[in-house]
Write a protein that binds this DNA or RNA. Sequence first.
RNA 1: GGCGGCGUGGCCGAGUGGUUUAGGCAGGGGCCUGCAAAGCCCCGUACGGCGGUUCGAUUCCGCCCGCCGCCUCCA
Length: 481
Amino acid sequence: MLRLYDTATLKVRPLELRDPNRVSFYACGLTVYDVPHIGHGRGWLVFDVLRRYLVFSGLAVHHVSNVTNVDDQIIKRAAAEGRTEPEVAAEFEAAWWRDSDALGVLRPDDTPRATDYVDKMIDLVSDLLARDVAYRTSTGVYLDVSRVEGYGLLAHQPLESLLAGARVEVDPEKRSPLDFALWKRAKTGEPTWDAPFGAGRPGWHTECVVMSLDLLGEGFDLHGGGVDLIFPHHENERAQAIAEHRAFARHWIHHGWVMSGGAKMSKSLHNFVTVAEMIERSDPRSYRLLVLRSQYRSQIEVTPTSVEDAEKGLGRLDALARRFELREDLALGRSALTPSVVAGEGLVREEVDRFCERMDDDLDTPGALAGIFDAVNRANVMADRGEEEEAAALARTVVTLCGVLGLALRADEGADLDEAVRRLVAERDAARASGDYGRSDAIRSELAALGWTLEDTAQGTRLLRQHTHGSRFTRPPVGPC
RNA sequence: GGCGGCGUGGCCGAGUGGUUUAGGCAGGGGCCUGCAAAGCCCCGUACGGCGGUUCGAUUCCGCCCGCCGCCUCCA
């Protein structure tokens, strides 16, 4: 059974499910006011792998991720560009799906938009007012955090020390600087909704409580996001649920930052690389491999070198698929993640067990990958020795386990071979057969210029598309642009 | 000020109280190959500093140094 670090207890503990066969998982999504950067990408990849692994373990997963499409930043951008808020939101929501698709991330089962839940949010705010845990001021409705049992659970700080460190600007109408807006009173020119407590728009922390409980129900299993969301966002979501006496997430998962030049990647520091830039410069699978080479809770530094490193590693995996010509297995590996392999015996069984053991330990993807690379080596050794069957079984296992990690290996590029390339290969084969190596090498250079690498093997000539252009990752992801 | 985390061989990155080791990349040597590519074999002997516990610590404890994050919108 999967054991995960739980932010609420600061310990790795078994993921105890509400329903033993089904995982309900809510991951905070994006505020759609700009294009996603590779920090967002890391979050998608981490949760994508979590999800694929749960499915591989035989569990059904209900994955929800929200779209925050009403927010200060969106309003600001729309105003600056003379567009409407829905236009801005739609543009960047589309960018989200485009980029996450390109990274091979499975889409969530539900992607609720905040604006579709305003009525339910109004109900919640009304109820919190009725319970007297919220109060009105001239600027909106606030939750009185002093009325919430155990506020500070996720921050791991008592109310007093949170107050001591608070850097929030002082609002004399608020009872405490920590009280947060459930509802922001309407300002001219901003999107507003009518409500019994005054026209306005919802505060950010309210949408996620409402949507998670609505779609996943009380006491859902797992709630996650980046570490920055622990406080105040998740703390405040939880506060509202507690104030309502409704059971909230059973387990909390948070992933670490992507760093750049030793600092957290962020819009304000201008040290970010967008997902689009990343996948334009290198095989999108490289970034996935790069991310998985570190444990999800640690900070990772992304540099041109680390990207190249990952590209090389990926090349090694693809080479295995090529050597064993596992095209059909590859196709299978993408869709059928469940345990046909698990039923295997001997070597295969050991390999899968080792993989699962590591993944069960708080998603130790670096360890799981070490096992995979080790299997790559052993498969090659066996094949060199002529133990074809065992070698192939192991290689297939590698392909399947990579599939669980969302890494679709490639045996070749047969599909995009055009006629000219085919002819050059045939011509070169003929030249080699007749011992005309000068001609043969000239053709190889020609193909290289077209982006193809050749492998002469006993089974014939293999072509390999060059995906490695880490060197083109030239803009240092450091410092102001 | 409070809280959380980190410091491992050229780089990235796991792990562990003591026999033999993560793994990847890079580098050197060799095998294979017409030459390559892919693959294989061999080579580095590392755990921030100072103390302590211990027969023995990189791994446990304390202190120190350095780094990062959160406490504000943020993945």
